[in-house]
């Protein structure tokens, strides 16, 4: 209860901080969600994607 009270007083009480919290939160959430989704997908398809095999072909021409 104390934590939610602090969060409310700090972030949600004033409209200005509330709006900023929403915008920053949306950007942060999008970043985390996108990267987590990509990580899960790449873990599921380990070794099959181009990302995982491209080192085999890049070292040749360098």
């Amino acid at each position: 209860m104390a934590l939610s009270q602090t969060v409310y007083n700090l972030l949600f009480r004033r409209t200005s901080t509330f709006a900023i919290t929403i915008m920053v939160g949306a950007v942060l959430f999008e970043r985390v969600f996108d990267q987590a989704g990509n990580a899960v997908f790449e873990q599921l398809n380990r070794g099959k994607l181009w990302k995982h095999i491209k080192h085999n072909y890049e070292s040749k021409d360098e």
Binding site: F41, L44, N45, K48, L49, W50, H52, I53
Partner: peptide, 13 residues
Amino acid sequence: WSHNGLLSSLDHT
């Protein structure tokens, strides 16, 4: 096929 699953990518090799 190795890409049959709902979340399975194509095998790029």
